[in-house]
């Protein structure tokens, strides 16, 4: 559904652009290609990192991590796993829901979900290309620390 929306938007934009100006539309497509080719080397590195991370940290392993640990250690572990992995929401949410039903703490699940979304260790090569080493590392460090704080807030909000 996500992707469908994206394609619909791109098709609509491309159509409107074509109607108004052919040469500018061509320029836009050329720029799109140039931007893509520019990032392709980093994209390929990310692809390999994701493949290995997901092979080692498969859903069963992640579930063990999230289910077993409780307290601060569990929250830390959950946020670390979330930071490293790159799973689309439509896979992560049902898995997290199943864990929640199975007795995992809301704080741990929130730490996982938050860091999964905000922190991207495997996508760092791409982020660094656009934001530089310093800003990219800072963003991920801040986001990771924040995802732990957010987890305690969500855990508290769910419990009241």
């Amino acid at each position: 559904m996500d992707t469908f929306f994206l394609y619909a938007l791109a098709a609509l934009g491309l159509g409107a652009s074509l109607l108004r100006d052919r040469t500018r539309t061509l320029a836009a497509v050329k720029k799109a290609w140039k931007a893509f080719e520019g990032i392709l080397p980093q994209l390929l590195v990310v692809l390999v990192l994701v493949a290995v991370a997901l092979a080692v940290l498969d859903t069963a392993t992640i579930s063990r991590f999230l289910g077993s640990g409780s307290g601060m250690l569990g929250v830390l572990g959950a946020s670390l796993v979330g930071a490293i992995t790159l799973i689309p929401g439509f896979v992560a949410f049902p898995a997290a829901a199943a864990l929640l039903k199975g007795g995992a703490g809301a704080t741990q699940i929130a730490a996982f979900v938050s860091s999964l979304m905000m922190v991207g260790v495997v996508t760092l090569p791409m982020e660094m290309k656009y934001f530089g080493r310093r800003a990219a590392l800072l963003r991920n460090a801040f986001a990771w620390a924040f995802s732990i704080l957010a987890a305690f807030f969500v855990g508290w909000a769910v419990s009241i």
Partner: peptide, 12 residues
């Protein structure tokens, strides 16, 4: 679609 959209943004 993401790159097409950013190309359009850039041009328009």
């Amino acid at each position: 679609p993401i790159f097409i959209l950013l190309g359009l943004l850039d041009v328009w």
